[in-house]
Amino acid sequence: KTYTFRVRIVDEETGEEKEIEVTAKSEEEAKKAAEELKKKYPNLKVELE
């Protein structure tokens, strides 16, 4: 079973919002993916929905 999570990304500089879908095998995995995004884009606000 896989879970699909919507991750909302807000670029703090431009105020631009993007939504991406993360497919993960567990909620834990999705959280890790969101953390990776935060590391990659430090000025983005990442929200897991």
Results as ranks from 00 to 15, higher is better:
residue 1 K to L: 08
residue 1 K to C: 15
residue 1 K to D: 12
residue 2 T to G: 09
residue 2 T to F: 12
residue 2 T to R: 11
residue 2 T to C: 15
residue 2 T to P: 06
residue 2 T to K: 12
residue 2 T to Y: 13
residue 3 Y to V: 10
residue 3 Y to K: 11
residue 3 Y to E: 06
residue 4 T to E: 04
residue 4 T to R: 10
residue 4 T to Q: 07
residue 4 T to V: 12
residue 4 T to H: 11
residue 5 F to S: 01
residue 5 F to I: 14
residue 6 R to C: 14
residue 6 R to Q: 06
residue 6 R to M: 14
residue 6 R to L: 13
residue 6 R to P: 02
residue 7 V to M: 06
residue 7 V to D: 00
residue 7 V to N: 00
residue 7 V to I: 15
residue 8 R to D: 00
residue 8 R to N: 03
residue 8 R to S: 05
residue 9 I to E: 00
residue 9 I to Y: 12
residue 9 I to L: 13
residue 9 I to S: 00
residue 9 I to R: 00
residue 9 I to D: 00
residue 9 I to T: 03
residue 9 I to W: 15
residue 10 V to A: 02
residue 10 V to D: 00
residue 10 V to R: 12
residue 10 V to L: 10
residue 10 V to W: 13
residue 11 D to N: 12
residue 11 D to A: 01
residue 11 D to H: 03
residue 11 D to V: 04
residue 11 D to I: 05
residue 12 E to F: 08
residue 12 E to M: 13
residue 12 E to N: 08
residue 12 E to H: 11
residue 12 E to Q: 09
residue 12 E to T: 11
residue 13 E to D: 09
residue 13 E to G: 07
residue 13 E to W: 07
residue 13 E to V: 11
residue 14 T to Y: 01
residue 14 T to A: 03
residue 14 T to C: 04
residue 14 T to I: 01
residue 15 G to Q: 03
residue 15 G to M: 04
residue 15 G to C: 06
residue 15 G to N: 03
residue 15 G to D: 02
residue 15 G to K: 03
residue 15 G to L: 04
residue 16 E to C: 14
residue 16 E to M: 09
residue 16 E to T: 07
residue 17 E to H: 09
residue 17 E to C: 15
residue 17 E to A: 10
residue 17 E to V: 15
residue 18 K to W: 15
residue 18 K to L: 14
residue 18 K to H: 13
residue 18 K to V: 13
residue 19 E to P: 01
residue 19 E to D: 05
residue 20 I to R: 01
residue 20 I to K: 00
residue 20 I to F: 12
residue 21 E to F: 15
residue 21 E to C: 14
residue 21 E to G: 02
residue 21 E to R: 05
residue 22 V to N: 00
residue 22 V to R: 00
residue 22 V to S: 01
residue 22 V to F: 14
residue 22 V to I: 15
residue 22 V to L: 13
residue 22 V to Y: 06
residue 22 V to C: 14
residue 23 T to R: 09
residue 23 T to M: 10
residue 23 T to S: 11
residue 23 T to D: 06
residue 23 T to F: 14
residue 23 T to P: 04
residue 24 A to E: 02
residue 24 A to C: 14
residue 24 A to H: 03
residue 24 A to W: 04
residue 24 A to G: 08
residue 24 A to V: 12
residue 24 A to R: 03
residue 25 K to R: 13
residue 25 K to C: 14
residue 25 K to Y: 14
residue 25 K to E: 12
residue 25 K to Q: 12
residue 26 S to W: 02
residue 26 S to Q: 00
residue 26 S to M: 01
residue 26 S to C: 07
residue 26 S to A: 01
residue 27 E to L: 15
residue 27 E to G: 04
residue 27 E to W: 15
residue 28 E to S: 10
residue 28 E to T: 06
residue 28 E to C: 11
residue 28 E to F: 08
residue 28 E to W: 11
residue 28 E to P: 05
residue 28 E to Y: 08
residue 29 E to I: 03
residue 29 E to H: 04
residue 29 E to N: 03
residue 30 A to T: 01
residue 30 A to M: 08
residue 30 A to D: 00
residue 30 A to W: 09
residue 30 A to P: 00
residue 31 K to P: 01
residue 31 K to G: 05
residue 31 K to A: 10
residue 31 K to Q: 11
residue 31 K to F: 12
residue 31 K to N: 09
residue 32 K to R: 11
residue 32 K to Q: 12
residue 32 K to H: 10
residue 32 K to Y: 09
residue 32 K to P: 00
residue 33 A to Y: 15
residue 33 A to V: 14
residue 33 A to Q: 10
residue 33 A to P: 00
residue 33 A to M: 14
residue 33 A to C: 15
residue 34 A to E: 07
residue 35 E to M: 10
residue 35 E to C: 08
residue 36 E to A: 10
residue 36 E to T: 07
residue 36 E to D: 11
residue 36 E to R: 09
residue 37 L to D: 00
residue 37 L to W: 08
residue 37 L to C: 06
residue 37 L to S: 01
residue 37 L to E: 01
residue 37 L to Q: 02
residue 37 L to A: 02
residue 37 L to N: 01
residue 38 K to R: 13
residue 38 K to T: 07
residue 38 K to M: 14
residue 38 K to Y: 11
residue 38 K to E: 05
residue 38 K to N: 05
residue 39 K to N: 06
residue 39 K to I: 11
residue 39 K to S: 06
residue 39 K to L: 11
residue 39 K to A: 09
residue 39 K to V: 08
residue 40 K to D: 05
residue 40 K to V: 07
residue 40 K to G: 04
residue 40 K to E: 07
residue 41 Y to R: 03
residue 41 Y to N: 04
residue 41 Y to P: 02
residue 41 Y to W: 09
residue 41 Y to L: 03
residue 41 Y to T: 03
residue 42 P to I: 04
residue 42 P to Q: 04
residue 42 P to F: 05
residue 42 P to L: 04
residue 42 P to C: 05
residue 42 P to H: 04
residue 43 N to I: 04
residue 44 L to F: 12
residue 44 L to A: 14
residue 44 L to E: 03
residue 44 L to D: 03
residue 44 L to T: 04
residue 45 K to D: 04
residue 45 K to S: 06
residue 45 K to P: 03
residue 45 K to H: 07
residue 45 K to G: 04
residue 45 K to V: 10
residue 45 K to W: 07
residue 46 V to F: 12
residue 46 V to I: 13
residue 46 V to A: 04
residue 46 V to Y: 06
residue 46 V to S: 04
residue 47 E to P: 04
residue 47 E to Q: 10
residue 47 E to D: 10
residue 47 E to Y: 15
residue 47 E to R: 08
residue 47 E to I: 15
residue 48 L to K: 05
residue 48 L to E: 05
residue 48 L to R: 05
residue 48 L to N: 04
residue 48 L to C: 13
residue 48 L to T: 06
residue 49 E to A: 13
residue 49 E to S: 13
